[in-house]
């Protein structure tokens, strides 16, 4: 037994204290990447206008964070994104619920998704501008449009793959209609629903940034897409980079939030799909 354990131990030299933490390792890798970037920019003498140094980007970040122009733009973008995704999710859930409770609903969903799923959210933007003008409604509309299909499709799939045994148990308990959907189908479909939400969120994120790039200011304050586009217009390349950094950080934060939700729900209940 003991001998086997000794053999099974990895060959690599054990990492010293602090390096054991994955967070420390990740921070170090990130620092190394940024340092490499800095070295490249200084040694190769790249034009700062094309490819600014990390210090320049850092300065732009700090400046625009403290002047609140980045926070304001972030809030604007997140507002569009959250409202759009909520509308999309609500419609998607409704469509999926209709699809599971009636054959007509099923056909409706499959026809709608085959028509609209191949049409990316940004492609709808010109239409949204004709319908709603340069208003926040137009952006929220395209985000809702981009998120509704992945959510409807995956929730419907989730509903359809609920274990037949569980459905029989539900019917034995007398569950029908809304109660059946809310109490049994929805939680049972949660793994699918969550992965649909993740896809929807990613689609919505791309769509909202792209829409803001095209759009400029809708309403009182421009979003992150607008921030980047304005910086490009004035050739303030470090600010363009600063905007990209913020978008990337937000993406990481959202990913982390999803993991947290999964950990608290489907992982805790042993429902996480493996593989």
């Amino acid at each position: 037994m003991r001998g086997e354990l000794e053999l099974a131990r990895p060959r690599a030299v054990p990492a010293p204290g602090v390096l054991r933490s994955p967070w420390v390792r990740r921070a170090l890798i990130l620092a190394a990447l940024i340092a490499a970037w800095q070295v490249y920019v200084t040694v190769a003498q790249v034009k700062p206008l094309l490819f600014p140094s990390p210090t320049a980007v850092g300065e732009a970040l700090v400046r625009d964070l403290t002047s609140l122009s980045i926070p304001r733009s972030t809030v604007t973008t997140l507002q569009f994104l959250v409202i759009g995704t909520l509308v999309g999710a609500a419609l998607g859930l409704l469509l999926a619920a209709f699809s599971i409770t009636s054959p007509i609903g099923h056909e409706l969903l499959s026809i709608l998704t085959s028509i609209f799923n191949p049409l990316p959210g940004v492609a709808i933007l010109p239409l949204a501008m004709i319908w709603f003008g340069l208003t926040p409604t137009a952006i929220i509309f395209v985000v809702a449009y981009a998120t509704v299909w992945p959510i409807a499709i995956s929730t419907d799939m989730g509903f359809r793959t609920v274990s037949p045994t569980l459905q029989m148990v539900a019917r034995t308990l007398g569950l029908k209609g809304f109660r059946l959907v809310a109490d049994v189908l929805l939680p049972a479909a949660l793994p699918h629903l969550l992965s649909g939400l993740k896809v929807a969120w990613a689609f919505g994120w791309r769509t909202v940034v792209a829409a803001e790039l095209v759009f400029g200011v809708a309403g009182a304050q421009g979003g992150l897409g607008w921030y980047i586009n304005t910086a490009r217009y004035f050739l303030e390349t470090p600010r363009v980079f600063a905007g990209l950094v913020i978008i990337s950080l937000l993406g990481i934060a959202v990913e982390y939030a999803f993991r947290l939700v999964e950990f608290r729900t489907i992982e805790r209940w042993g429902m996480k799909k493996t593989g």
Binding site: T172, L173, P187, A188
Partner: peptide, 20 residues
């Protein structure tokens, strides 16, 4: 006519409990 709680069923499968 339809299923109901006067006829409770226990199945063979282990997935008959609500996992959540």
């Amino acid at each position: 006519r339809e299923p109901g709680p006067d006829r409770a069923v226990v199945f063979q499968d282990f997935d008959q409990l609500f996992p959540w």
